[in-house]
Structure formats: structure tokens, C-alpha cells
Amino acid sequence: MAIDVATVRKVARLARIAEPEDRLETLAKELSGIMNWIEQLSEVDTDGVEPMTSAVHMPAPMRDDVVTEGGDPEVVLSNSPKRAGNFFVVPKVVE
């Protein structure tokens, strides 16, 4: 299945990656090439097959819902691109 420029633009937006207009054509070709190769999966009969969602045969373990670590803002903020006091500074979220 061919992926066109409009689809690449839409998917790049969904993925929050700015792709310049002049890259879209190349990306459309590359992604179409990959998806065409993937198309061969349609040959496999998967009627009644359970999707495999995990590589381990065990139920997800549960633990008590309690704080294990925390209370150290310096550790949490040490890699922040921008901070003010004990807060992350981010662009305005609500207009």
C-alpha cells in the first residue's frame, strides 16, 4: 500500500515531529517501500489466532500502592531544560 505525501504529513503531526515540506516526498517513498515489503504478512492465515501481547507467560505482578521513592526535587529536576525553583518551566498549555 502506497503512503502519499498527505498521509506522511498527517502521521508526522500525530508523532509530533516537524518534517519540512521538501522531505515529505522522500519520506513517502521510503515508508511506502517499507510498508510494501511488510504487506507480505497478508499471506499468513491468522484466523482464530490469539494476538501475542507478551513474551512472558505470567500475569502482571501486583504490588502495594505506596510511595517507594520520592521527595527529592533536585533529583527530579536535575536534567530539566528549564526550571524555576522546584518547578519545570514549560510552554503555556491552556490558551
Binding site: 511488510i38 504478512l41 497478508s42 499468513v44 491468522t46 489466532v49 490469539e50 494476538p51 501475542m52 501481547t53
Partner: peptide, 14 residues
């Protein structure tokens, strides 16, 4: 068409 299909093929491989 893609993701779920791939998970089913994954099961067949396993």
C-alpha cells in the same frame, strides 16, 4: 490490519 495482524503472526512464529 497491521498491528493486530503482526501480533497474530508473532504468535504463529512462537
Amino acid at each position: 490490519a497491521y498491528y493486530l495482524k503482526a501480533l497474530k503472526v508473532r504468535r504463529r512464529i512462537a
